[in-house]
């Protein structure tokens, strides 16, 4: 198993390399550059800037220069946020995003599993229908609607929670709810479907025929099987949640890294975009590996060696 994990991580290196290469050239193909402004800079200033940031060199030379720095763990300076390196920007923002995403993920898992299981156990009852209704709502209503609504209701009208900012535990509540809501919905639906299937399976019939208490049948025999599809979903979902959300961070004014991706791309802040891409790619690779290992831990029929 350990050998498998190591092999998978080694296998991720060429993947990351391809992603970096692709993203690098894609950014350069996009028209414009980091120093194009509405008011054009003086030719001499622009020349100086380009020289400092090596933009006067041919693209392939810039590429190898970037790779060389990357190999030393240097993501380079940000082109727009002067005086900040990309490391500093991401290093400040990432903990916020991880905290936020991690909380949302936990909340979503907990509530999603409970709701989905209850719906499955009471299949076709009003409880089931309400869970499905809530789930559909959670998936269809976009977060740029949910976020300001929550902020307005709980932050402005009732003044129960901070409407924005990042300075107290309470300020996490609304962003976490906003981020978790669609995930709750997706997980609840997944669990409900696989739980219904698990409850109908032959081995659950065996457990019932052997007089095991219902609680034990549901938790031990049905839920574990029902969790497997959720775990597959969690790999990419966790990577996406933990690397921040533009909308939520913008509306609640949070210092996460989600906004850097969009801002960086719009500003042609080449190094910042590259840094964000690398972070997301690493998260995706790592979480997919975690999912696969978790899968093997939960299902003895899956073996890696």
């Amino acid at each position: 198993m350990l050998g498998y994990a190591v092999r998978r991580l080694l296998g991720a290196i060429p993947t990351l390399f391809l992603i970096v290469t692709f993203a690098f050239f894609l950014m350069r193909v996009a028209p414009g550059g980091p120093f194009d402004r509405e008011r054009t800079l003086e030719a001499k200033v622009l020349e100086n800037l380009n020289r400092v940031f090596h933009l006067d060199k041919p693209v392939w030379e810039q590429y190898f220069y970037y790779l060389g720095n990357l190999a030393r763990g240097d993501l380079g300076p940000s082109f727009i946020y002067r005086d900040f390196s990309v490391q500093q920007l991401l290093g400040n923002g990432l903990p916020v995003s991880i905290q936020l995403g991690g909380m949302a993920l936990l909340v979503a898992l907990l509530i999603g599993c409970v709701l989905g299981s209850i719906a499955a156990l009471r299949q076709n009852s009003w409880i089931d229908y309400s869970v499905i209704a809530v789930a559909t709502f959670g998936i269809t209503v976009p977060n740029f609607v949910v976020a300001p609504l929550l902020s307005l209701i709980f932050g402005v009208w009732f003044s129960l929670l901070p409407a924005g900012g990042w300075n107290s535990p309470e300020s996490m509540v609304l962003p976490v709810i906003t981020l978790a809501l669609p995930q709750v919905a997706i997980i609840a639906r997944l669990i409900r479907g696989s739980m219904i299937e698990a409850l109908r399976s032959d081995h659950v019939r065996t457990a019932r025929a052997y007089g095991l208490p219902t609680r034990m049948i549901v938790v031990v025999h049905a839920l574990r099987a029902a969790c497997l599809p959720v775990i597959s979903y969690l790999g990419p979902a966790a990577a996406a949640l933990l690397t921040g959300s533009v909308v939520v961070e913008t509306i609640f004014g949070l210092p996460g890294i989600g906004r850097y991706f969009v801002q960086g791309a719009l500003n042609r802040d080449y190094t910042l975009v590259m840094g964000t891409v690398i972070i997301i790619a690493v998260f995706v690779v790592v979480f997919n590996l975690i999912v696969d290992l978790l899968y093997a831990a939960l299902d003895p029929r899956v073996r890696y060696d």
Partner: peptide, 17 residues
């Protein structure tokens, strides 16, 4: 009263020893 079933392949939970 105990039962055994037709499908020995699926009547046991695949996830437990």
């Amino acid at each position: 009263i105990t039962m055994i079933f037709q499908e020995p392949m699926t009547s046991l939970d695949p996830l437990y020893t």
